[in-house]
Design a protein around this nucleic acid. Structure first.
Lengths: 190, 190
DNA sequence: AGACAATTATACCAATCGGTATAATCCTGT
DNA sequence: ACAGGATTATACCGATTGGTATAATTGTCT
């Protein structure tokens, strides 16, 4: 019963931001959807921007928590890539509005409020993946010096498929997962 | 001398939209940057939304014009992929603000004004690439039925690299171009 | 019961939002 | 020189923006 209103504000703000964007949604609209008034929102979050930060923080930790173990190298890169992709697919399916918001913020205009809030989150994922490729390169000599490119394109591929799924042009099932990782590893001719 | 103001409005609107987003930029700010007044803007474009449409239309045609010939299949898929990537890289380098705006709109929230304006533009590119893979599949039997996935991931890869370049984390030079296309075709182990 | 802090409501703020009515100006063709 | 359409400026519209001052309410602990 404690912070019931706080949670309601968060969930409605997420839904609205994901549907129409941070700038296009007014504070008034959020509090009306949540069934509270403005001072309640400003009591919990202080500003619209900090409401967004709180939103990102709470949901992102859940994503990071499942990706981090999946990116821990244990001698089998292809297994890592499958587990990471599975983790992302599962998370995107469980929190579509949040992942939509996250995606839109990664490529948001750089001077906007939403970009800087999200850039750090992207970096943390990227570094996780880059470290994995760096470690794997020690076992696959011909991968040396490519970890940056591989990390970026691997994350890019995952986000490409999730974008398709969010627009209902793909289903994030096990078959797609296998084909996606296979294509990433072996190219399009195999 | 004719529509000098019209062009000024377009160019400043593009710069501002790309920097901070469609919703975060007010009409007032655009006209001030362009050195005109609001009725001038509304005389030429009628509404803020139609200003955005005009912006997209004019610049997108230039992109489409260079990608279309590059996507025309002539029996050598790898040559097409190189030419298409080169066309995108060149365009992104020549119009960074516009490509930034385009990218941000592809993954923008689906109920926002900017999304529907851009979705059609993405589809047109996608269909160009998909047709190419469909034609190439007739010569490479083992690619059959994969043209959708290949078109999506190929475009996704290009946009991943361009995003990196826009954030100054990569240079869209010939070396990157070659490596990108090679990786797409043959995977990460070769 | 009474005190105290956390929480919520009423009512308001200046500033900005997208858009427009009216009229003045400018340029072009005759 | 003059007409007429294209273009631009002044001044304004109601609605909404993010944010807040004040006060009433609530739950908790002593």
């Amino acid at each position: 019963m404690d912070s019931d209103n706080r949670a309601k504000i968060l969930s409605h703000a997420l839904r609205l931001f994901a549907a129409r964007g941070y700038d296009a949604v007014g504070v008034q609209e959020i509090v009306e959807a949540a069934g509270v008034t403005k001072p309640t929102l400003y009591h919990y979050f202080g500003s619209k921007r900090r409401l967004l930060d709180a939103l990102l923080e709470e949901h992102f930790m859940a994503l990071y928590a499942v990706v981090e173990p999946a990116a821990c190298y244990r001698g089998d890169l292809s297994r890592n890539l499958n587990e990471i992709t599975a983790a992302y697919f599962r998370f995107a399916k469980s929190q579509p509005p949040f992942y939509r918001l996250l995606l839109s913020m990664y490529v948001a205009p750089p001077d906007g409020e939403s970009f800087h809030a999200a850039y750090g989150l992207y970096r943390r994922q990227y570094e996780l993946i880059e470290t994995l490729f760096k470690q794997a390169a020690e076992h696959h000599g011909n991968m040396k010096g490519r970890h940056r490119r591989y990390a970026a394109t691997f994350l890019g591929m995952i986000n490409t498929y999730i974008t398709l799924a969010l627009n209902e042009a793909a289903a994030l099932d096990d078959e797609l997962l296998y084909k996606a990782v296979h294509q990433f590893m072996h190219g399009i001719y195999s």
